[in-house]
Design a protein around this nucleic acid. Sequence first.
DNA 1: CTGAAAGCGCTTACAG
DNA 2: CTGAAAGCGCTTACAG
Lengths: 337, 337
Amino acid sequence: MNQSSKKPVTLQDVAKHAGVSRATASLIVRNSPKISSETRKKVLKSMEELGYVYDRVAANLRSKSSTTIGIIITDISNTYYSDLLKGVHHTLEEIGYTVLLGVTFDSVEKQDQILSSMIEHRVGGIILCPVSESADETVNRLNKLQIPAILAVRELAGSNCDFVGVDYQAGSQMAVEHLIKKGHKRVAFLGGYRKASTWIERMEGYSLALQQAGIELDGSIVIDSVPTREGGVDAVRQLLSLPNRPTAIFCFSDLVAFGVVQGVREAGLKPGEDIAIMGFDNIPEAEIFYPPLSTVSSFAQLTGKTAANLLHQRITQSEGEKKRIILQPELIVREST
Amino acid sequence: MNQSSKKPVTLQDVAKHAGVSRATASLIVRNSPKISSETRKKVLKSMEELGYVYDRVAANLRSKSSTTIGIIITDISNTYYSDLLKGVHHTLEEIGYTVLLGVTFDSVEKQDQILSSMIEHRVGGIILCPVSESADETVNRLNKLQIPAILAVRELAGSNCDFVGVDYQAGSQMAVEHLIKKGHKRVAFLGGYRKASTWIERMEGYSLALQQAGIELDGSIVIDSVPTREGGVDAVRQLLSLPNRPTAIFCFSDLVAFGVVQGVREAGLKPGEDIAIMGFDNIPEAEIFYPPLSTVSSFAQLTGKTAANLLHQRITQSEGEKKRIILQPELIVREST
DNA sequence: CTGAAAGCGCTTACAG
DNA sequence: CTGAAAGCGCTTACAG
């Protein structure tokens, strides 16, 4: 991994060429105001002529600082995460950081590995969207870390980190209340891992909404699945084979809802007409989907942006109470309900 | 951007604690086989106890090497690029690189800025998906760079870089031939910037397919637009206001096709039945779309993977002829045609 | 502004 | 394997 060819030009070379001291040249690359604009111009010209490139890595080493941030997500193909990444990346870059990307593909080992690699690369901070069954060990490592870390999307029990997330319970309640208001009395809840905190919170919102409407919860129409489109297809097939078919379905996520719509069609029913379907997340595809999907926005991009800003704050101000920022979701009504 | 607290432990500290020399400790972190497993174990234990973290940045500085790679894309929300990114990231990480992410949002200035930042961070190589109107200056910088760089998706005139791309002409020809085989004699071509090389190549494929079928090209049903869903809506509105309506539409991209489907519906027509619609790229949404979209796969992930491997080769073997790898697209027939 | 010195945490090269 | 020295490219701290 070497690159050879001509010797790279250093600050020393620039200083010599411009006839100033190395210290002066150093002040100039760092935009110090203490330097007269004449000297600055002269030195900048030398840099230009010599083709100097600033070695930020060496600078960071000496000054014990860092201009990189690590962001770790579970899946890049999931538009929820690519949206969140967009939010993080955009605000971080604006502040002047360079971002290191890590993708865990929901593997705990990979997550630990990426964490190590980022720390060894001296990132100034980390934003972590944890794998669902993150080990206690991960939590411990995060806590022992000298580096500021923010958790996003999923909280980790026992971690002493700032957290940015979404109120899944409120969102689910909203969604189910919307369905009930539309006249539905039998509403299924499909998809997601039953043990995940993100499922449990949604389940609470679902129960609450039913309860407040005086509808009894029927466990047989709560069907879990892998949280993907395929999972949605499976779950809805199971559901539609049941005797007392519901008139509305609340799905764990938009991805699951896409599968559910497909399964409903396969059964010869018209999604949005014969049966109402509601998603969760409001990923970009929800809008272009047919029928356009009613859903609850969990503001992926805003989540990323918020996490990025919080991290920046943590880095610059260091101390202070750990924060917990919970975004309020928003009901998005389209044609599928 | 400092982090204070306790003094971090260095290799020196580890060596002292384990009773070995610094040189030995250094050999151990680098997995040298020259060290007896007894010594290795002892030292690893000391590292564990002291909570040592290897400073890869300092190591890279001293050994004039790099373990990071920069990947620059134009848009993270576009699943074509997030797919490509997935391919790049996955293979690079497997080799042992850490990836720096840059997003240009199609701005030349941003692209230059990101390029600078990555170089200053001493990346070992760069994969660049260039902004469409990249300036000559960018090309010059790339050529002067001491760092291996690979161009992906779009080629840059005058650049002396390796390139990985897709045969857009062949893909378009395939698509239009498919439509003609289905019995369509009047096929529109909608969307994309007329001056972009990616448009011109598609146009060539389109013309060729018509020509070989003995169909005369009608310029009035070739309508350009911004290459987005909105652009597709605009273009198809314009098209449908024309007197002699075509029976099939070849779209610049899947994204454009999504807009075209929407516009067709708004006009009271049934996409896939009253009018055939064909996309390009085969982004993941094409499959879940309704109707499932016929398209041409441009293998985004494979493109990324190929670029990553080529870069790795370039970094390790350095010299040799510049390569140009053009992937052959594949026809994907679904229900929209 | 300058100049000389020391140091960030590591690797390199070499004599033993 | 060890040990002492030098150096990667920069910043820091200080006397002038």
